[in-house]
Design a protein around this nucleic acid. Structure first.
Lengths: 272, 272
DNA sequence: CTCTCCGATTTTGTGCACAATCCGCAGGTC
DNA sequence: GACCTGCGGATTGTGCACAAAATCGGAGAG
């Protein structure tokens, strides 16, 4: 989970200078902000704690240490993170709006369990956005700047290392980060933020619908994509990305199963 | 602001049946849910109030009755809506995550004032998503089903009526709803939800950056689009939609102006 | 033996009060 | 005259306590 923590300090004096008519004391305002920012950072807890907890829970969900359907009791989380229950409540509200957890009135918070339909929608949305990302990359960044290339290759190395080590959890997280990295390079923070949510929800969908035993390695597909982006013919990278997303979705078992208690009969009917 | 309220009742027993191993008492769970759902609806306030306030504030922002930078004091809002202050706080947190309001620690909530960069990003994101929407519409819904056609034409009628009446506020809201309607027809609720946020943020960007005096009427462009979608050659609708979004963005004054106090000197320098 | 009802316990929801912070303003100082 | 420094008023942030609701267990009826 990669929160899109905007620069609060910057927003701060921006608002200060524009809201009220008095724009002349901006220097003083900047001064106070610069001084107060570290002070806030030193205490570190009041505001950073929420972001930390959000990220922590988010990563746990993306890594499937918290599988879909898991109950997230407020009291337990408060104890785990050493904060008050209401802080946890706020965090859960944030995660709920990102559709990563489901809030059921008077029942509590649960790790979201997407429906098959929602899973399909999320992947389609990813295709839509990532197509635009790759288009932007192929259009504006060709040849690929050294910095991007270096970061991508460093990331690929980490992925392949995790693959060799059989660290499935790290591989999942890195795989998501790869797509996030591409979106960041594309230069549209808004789209990147939207994609961040969709990637998290993809993790959820994968956790909920993954077929047992099937697993095409993302690392090699990612490497082929980067190579196509760096030195392939125009459109090759796009094609690889679309195929990659299709492959990931095809790994899922999204057929039938209206999800729930319906197939109980059929399950036991076969046993007669 | 069009909240995407999911079917809570459905999620409810779905979770019930899958979380714990015991799946056999699902019938009983359904029973209790079916009974409790209307009861919750009758009381209606505990959960509906928040959504109502979110929609209310959201519409006010989209209609520019609350221009960017307006302070949203908790106490005042609580009094206006007749709820407790913490309810308002929750609502503001939700709106903040949708980037419609900006939350500044210890300062309060303000109607978001997007930067020029953010405005450009939002419009680019809209182009990305609405391109997909129109593609889906042209691909899967051709010829256009009667129901869609009827709803679209009814909407056009409302837009044109508002245009004739000079009801600028209604026109803005209807214009947003038009795009929302198309996204709904495309059949991907996830994408439609994302677009809903982007449309709201577009309203904000327009409010913040609109040029005085310029105003190309959306209603006629919308009508042309619908006609192209119904009976135009393939691709015509897409082209019109892209041109329409470009036109809306071009109405904005997104040049230079790093936003804030910087141009004060230049403004007064010209007067010597 | 199964189903239903009902009370005890746990968990969530909400109002309230107090603490912390910030803005505006006055007074003093260089 | 400009700047720093406290101080008062107001607003936001947070912990706490209580109320409301749901789950879980057992007892009783069919």
């Amino acid at each position: 989970m990669h929160g899109q923590g905007a620069g609060v300090a910057f927003v701060r004096w921006s608002v200060l200078c524009t809201i009220r008519g008095n724009t002349l004391n901006s220097a003083r305002a900047i001064m106070k902000t610069v001084l107060s920012a570290p002070r806030r950072a030193v205490r570190g807890r009041g505001e950073g704690a929420e972001a930390r907890i959000v990220r922590s829970i988010g990563e746990a969900i993306a890594d499937r240490r918290l599988p879909p359907g898991t109950k997230l009791a407020e009291e337990s989380l408060a104890e785990v993170f050493g904060v008050s229950r209401e802080r946890v409540r706020k965090v859960l509200l944030l995660l709920a709006q990102r559709r990563v957890v489901t809030l059921i009135p008077n029942r509590g918070a649960f790790v979201a369990k997407p429906t098959a339909r929602e899973a399909r929608e999320v992947f389609e949305a990813r295709r839509v956005i990532e197509r635009a990302v790759v288009e932007a990359l192929e259009r504006t960044a060709r040849p690929l700047p050294d910095e991007m290339s270096a970061k991508l290759r460093a990331h690929l190395a980490r992925e392949e290392e995790a693959d060799r080590a059989g660290d499935r959890m790290a591989l999942i997280r890195l795989s998501g980060q790869f797509h996030q990295l591409l979106a960041d390079f594309a230069g549209n923070a808004t789209l990147a933020g939207i994609l961040a949510d969709l990637i998290d929800r993809s993790s959820l969908a994968i956790a909920a619908f993954e077929r047992r035993s099937s697993h095409s390695c993302s690392a090699t597909e990612h490497r082929r994509f980067v190579e196509a982006l760096e030195s392939g013919p125009p459109g090759a990278a796009m094609r690889l990305m679309m195929e990659h997303l299709d492959a990931v979705e095809r790994q899922l078992d999204l057929d039938a199963r209206p999800d729930g208690a319906v197939d109980l009969k059929s399950v036991f009917a076969e046993r007669t």
